[in-house]
């Protein structure tokens, strides 16, 4: 049973980061009346980039060359902690969600430092934005996960996705909403960040990786897609009604479908919404924290009655 869940987790880890962005792009293409690229286009892009010779700026130092490695390594380690499938972080331990957030934090520092390393004003702008918005997103993530830990009475990432008690029917959707909005900030999607523009004034994540090329760019892009997968997987684990330890295959299937559905919803948002003004993004994160706080207040009532 454990082996099956491990294998499913690993399979998801390798496959989904290529599939989910493909799905999002296809949805946007359909909505715009185009046929769209193949679903696995991100895979072919990655393969192409891996065969290319990288170019480094003469201003950069070791930090720039180290950054793609650190970003990908931290995202991969975070992936072993996150519940991609319901009931399944690879190596669960108490409060592993704290380690998850902090490991990703290490990656983020190198992402922004690499941008500053180029000495480019555009990338400095992106670095400042990324660092600023993470200041608002990080507490929002903690309040949501802390609420879930409180509501479920468990402290491992996988188990806390199942809050119980009479107010679970309120706590779960509130947390799911908050996680979805967090996904839009953390994974640089609309309405927070526009992944399609290459205009320096409008973007955050794309401008950070402006100077990376070849295998480095492939690593950066794969890490970004993997992070999207992790957040979608977290959300799917929260919404999935079937426990993995009873019916692993069915649960994995439901989670898989849910993640694809999340990708479709993200695609729809990108087709229908315009990007927020930069000034509004911290307020967007505060809204998430407020939703999380409401869920927290609800969850605190629980142990008194039970």
């Amino acid at each position: 049973m454990i082996v099956a869940s491990l294998l499913l987790h690993l399979l998801g880890l390798v496959l989904l980061p290529f599939l989910l962005p493909g799905v999002i792009n296809r949805v946007k293409a359909w909505w715009g009346g185009r046929r769209g690229a193949p679903f696995l286009q991100p895979f072919w892009d990655t393969r192409r980039l891996l065969g290319k010779q990288p170019v480094y700026s003469d201003v950069t130092t070791l930090v720039f060359r180290l950054a793609p490695l650190v970003v990908l390594a931290t995202t991969l380690v975070a992936a072993t902690l996150a519940p991609m499938l319901p009931g399944g972080g690879l190596l669960p331990f108490p409060n592993d969600f704290v380690a998850f957030a902090y490991v990703l934090g290490l990656g983020r520092i190198f992402l922004t430092l690499a941008a500053l390393d180029t000495g480019s004003p555009f990338e400095g702008m992106g670095a400042a934005r990324e660092a600023t918005f993470s200041v608002f997103a990080e507490p929002a993530l903690f309040i949501v996960l802390g609420t879930l830990a409180l509501g479920s009475g468990h402290s491992t990432f996988a188990e806390l996705m199942r809050p119980h008690g009479w107010q679970a029917f309120l706590v779960t959707p509130l947390c799911a909403l908050a996680l979805f909005l967090l996904l839009q900030i953390e994974c640089a999607r609309l309405p927070v960040d526009d992944p399609t523009t290459h205009l320096e004034l409008t973007m955050i994540h794309e401008v950070l990786i402006l100077d990376h090329s070849g295998p480095d760019l492939a690593m950066m892009q794969y890490a970004a897609s993997l992070k999207l997968t992790l957040y979608a997987g977290m959300l799917a684990a929260l919404l999935n009604p079937i426990a993995l330890d009873q019916q692993p295959l069915l649960a994995a299937l439901v989670s898989f479908v849910l993640m694809l559905a999340i990708a479709v919803v993200v695609g729809l948002f990108e087709s229908l919404l315009a990007r927020f003004r930069m000034r509004l993004i911290p307020q967007f994160a505060v809204v998430i924290a407020v939703i999380g706080f409401a869920a927290l207040v609800l969850a605190t009532i629980q142990p008194e009655l039970g």
Binding site: G105, T132, S134, V297
Partner: peptide
């Protein structure tokens, strides 16, 4: 006590904010 745990979760949220600003 639910309230106590809730308050401590809030404290953890503030600590997360401090960590993020310090990284900034």
């Amino acid at each position: 006590g639910g309230q106590n745990r809730g308050l401590l979760v809030l404290a953890a949220t503030v600590l997360a904010f401090v960590g993020a600003v310090s990284a900034f």
